[in-house]
């Protein structure tokens, strides 16, 4: 069981989080055609290596998080608020300094 360092709550068991899948850019619904739209809906790159994912801290602060994770090592490369700049690196988030860097 890995830990994820929530930018709001600090390092917590991954069982507190809900996995939201790979983050993909949402096509503009006004102009989307079926093929790219369904690629957005149904296909994942599923890489062996760094991947950007959405997680929800369901049993904690209930914030949605963007997590960059290496699927081969489970190393957390970055965790940040959706849409924002990286708020903290995993390395720093494990020291308890995360609370000072709340976005």
């Amino acid at each position: 069981m890995i830990t994820l360092s929530c930018p709001w709550c600090g390092p917590r068991n991954v069982t507190e989080f809900a996995y939201g899948g790979e983050s993909g850019a949402r096509p503009d619904p006004a102009t989307a055609t079926p093929q790219p739209w369904r690629r957005y809906l149904y296909t994942n790159a599923n890489p062996a290596g760094p991947v950007t994912e959405t997680w929800l801290h369901r049993a904690g602060c209930r914030r949605y998080l963007v997590v960059e994770r290496d699927t081969t090592t489970n190393e957390i490369l970055a965790i940040r608020r959706p849409g924002g700049a990286p708020s903290t690196s995993a390395r720093h988030a494990t020291t308890g300094r995360a609370t000072e860097q709340r976005p």
Binding site: T3, T73, T95
Partner: peptide, 11 residues
């Protein structure tokens, strides 16, 4: 120690 290994994934 601050910045310790706690919780991080390590090689």
């Amino acid at each position: 120690e601050p910045g310790s290994v706690r919780g991080a994934a390590l090689p």
